[in-house]
Design a protein around this nucleic acid. Structure first.
Lengths: 229, 229
DNA sequence: CCAAAAGTGTTTATAGTACACCCATGC
DNA sequence: GCATGGGTGTACTATAAACACTTTTGG
């Protein structure tokens, strides 16, 4: 038993993990085994341990659900409505993660019946206030992808420009002009073209590119403001 | 005594309240009466009550320190490094507030020796990790003022364009061209010019303007993206 | 040779930037 | 009449937006 002089809320970290399958933006969901909200789908999360930072807690969740580490993570928002959990006062710090789905091995935790990637447009009613959390995350990724090179976190390290454009279109929910998209992305010089091309495609093969992180860091140090789309 | 089966951290809300004195951007600081960090300056804050939302807690802090309500508040970030408070694990949800200093009556709380507006450039060492929190807030306001009409929250409802420009220059830490600044702000049509002018100034009197909130909301509904500076 | 998707340039419109002089007011 | 700060317009540059045809590949 843990005793305190004043009431202390429980604190969890809930994770919105976005992935991309080449067509649509996906989010990782788990199906709860126990009450409250048994059998409902929810965002993966964990209670924060006593000596663990919030970010480490998010990393622990990723390790638990998919045996993965070292991915892009950012704090999203903290949800603290007193009634958001029927058991007790629970404050949830939400983290947004961007991963390559291929690197992830989905492993349902002990409290979970299933785990899966779900299209962000086909998420039904989630447990707790997780629909609100997801909505906040979608808003964040839509805003951020325009001026920070976070899209690359969702693709393999080698990707074609049409794949990158498809990702932007899926996230923004609108189509973009191919010529203008290429012109803009290439003009910032944060992409390295490889000599390698796509193989076995029934049309002209696209070149692969890589994100040039060093070049990007140089631009950031110079205080250059990117507007990617 | 409050008992829990698992350890629960304490949760506080700390507030970064920005004000503007016509020249420089100010932040509200309180001087701590007791340990830890006795006599040091800190951001005003409070422990979150059991049945209070995070936002209500921030509002309570504002009411306590300055008997004010109904001001602009937004959640900034949650700071949760395990060692950030030497007493016990304390997670702090930071809120940023923008106020008109004239509306505020500074009232030192029971735990506080003093309370004052301090120039953001002249804040020394603060208690806890409050220098980090302040740095995050300055970054946020600098980013946000470029595309959201939050500057008006720091000025009287009637203001002149040179006053508004002075505010932008203070926040961004750079000077702006007067003609271009006026052109841009006026072109978005979110300012209403009043017939009234400045009085008793030893130079040409400037016209007063008001922020046109209804017009702004219409623009937002149309999905128009403003870039104010 | 056909279908499918990749690659490519130019023109036009819009927005940003740089810059200097006259005007109104109080003392 | 002088010092102080308010108000204004134009030319130039850079960026954004619109738009159609040719190329490569597998089947």
């Amino acid at each position: 038993m843990y005793q305190y002089q004043y009431p202390h809320p429980a604190v969890t970290v809930d994770c919105i993990i976005f992935g991309f399958d080449g067509q649509n933006l996906k989010v990782m969901l788990v199906q709860r085994k126990s009450e409250p909200f048994a059998k409902m789908w929810a965002l993966p999360g964990a209670f924060v341990n006593e000596d663990e930072s919030l970010e480490s807690c998010a990393e622990r969740v990723l390790m638990k659900e998919g045996n993965i580490s070292g991915v892009y993570l950012e704090q999203l928002f903290t949800f603290g409505t007193p009634s958001r959990d029927p058991r007790e006062r629970v404050i949830s710090v939400a983290y947004m993660g961007l991963v390559k789905t291929a690197d992830f091995e989905l492993i349902a935790g002990n409290d979970e019946l299933q785990i899966e990637w779900r299209d962000v447009e086909q998420v039904g009613d989630l447990a707790f206030d997780h629909n609100d959390i997801l909505a906040t995350a979608i808003q964040r990724i839509r805003g951020k992808i325009r001026y920070q090179p976070i899209g690359f976190e969702l693709l393999d390290s080698k990707f074609t420009l049409p794949q990158l454009q498809q990702l932007y279109e899926a996230i923004l929910g609108q189509s973009l002009d191919r010529r203008n998209f290429r012109k803009k992305l290439l003009s910032m010089q944060i992409l390295k073209q490889l000599s390698e091309k796509q193989q076995n495609v029934a049309h002209k093969a696209a070149f692969y590119y890589e994100f040039d992180r060093e070049r990007y860091e140089v631009l950031m140090k110079e205080g250059i403001y990117l507007e990617l789309v």
